[in-house]
Amino acid sequence: MEFNHFHLPLNIKIENLSFRYNRHSEIGTAVLEDINLSVRAGELVAIIGLSGSGKTTLLQHMTGLLQPDSGRVLVDGKDIHSKNVSLSQLRRRLGLVFQFPETQLFAETVFDDIAFGPQNLGLDASQVASRVNAALLTVALNPPDFIDRSPFQLSSGEKRRVAIAGVLAMNPECLALDEPTAALDSTGILAISHFLKAFHASGKTVILVSHNIDLIARLATRVVVLRAGQLCYDGDVETLLCHQDILQQAGFALPRARCVVNYLVELGLANKRNLISVEQIKLHLTEIATTVSKQSIG
């Protein structure tokens, strides 16, 4: 899988950001309060928290869809709402995948839907076609099988991936996704997970809002926990999993795979607790089995 590098990957910095909806009315309640956060190029940052904790609002600030009441959003050191910054340029570099992006599918064929963005960039037909192809391959859909089909006749997992391909066809350097695996089956979740991993491995930045703790444990290099509009944790996944109180405040239980590890350790079948996926557990069990067989031979 290849991703074009037109620009250097971008850095996002949020300084003292506060925001409330309906701020001029009595009923306006604070959604985000004094948030400080910086996302460095190449990170895969997960944002978690209960419904209503401000995750989506934060994401919409990062992409300039909302303007903070106070505080600033800086991209590569520049305030995105200052006069000399073009938001349309920014959005080309920072692709936002909304919740249920498949509701935005509109064209008669998958090709036309994905091609819409690149065509508006003024690319010629062959460039557009190659962007569409590359985007489809990235989300693990075989182009010849899909380009002529109606996006409305695909399964929900396929629709979701076509919609994401539409954003990818713009060659963003950073992708911000709001609940990309919601309501998908395990095949769909796996496909999204593989694609995010590859996209991130190519050096791009990913900001991921998700309730799927297993997905986060497998992918994220860093986790940010929001609670009632405030940032209450910012660090690596492993440390978070060791702080069950924070995890619970964020509304999460330990990933099931981690509980399986703890149980294996209690049974004496494993001797490492810091594993977070079924694949890692299998690897560890294999290591133990090999050590044991070596010892018995020795």
Partner: peptide, 15 residues
């Protein structure tokens, strides 16, 4: 058929 099982079943199967 593209379905996952809970982690404990996958590990039991692997063992």
């Amino acid at each position: 058929v593209g379905l996952q099982v809970p982690a404990e079943y996958e590990i039991a199967d692997y063992l």
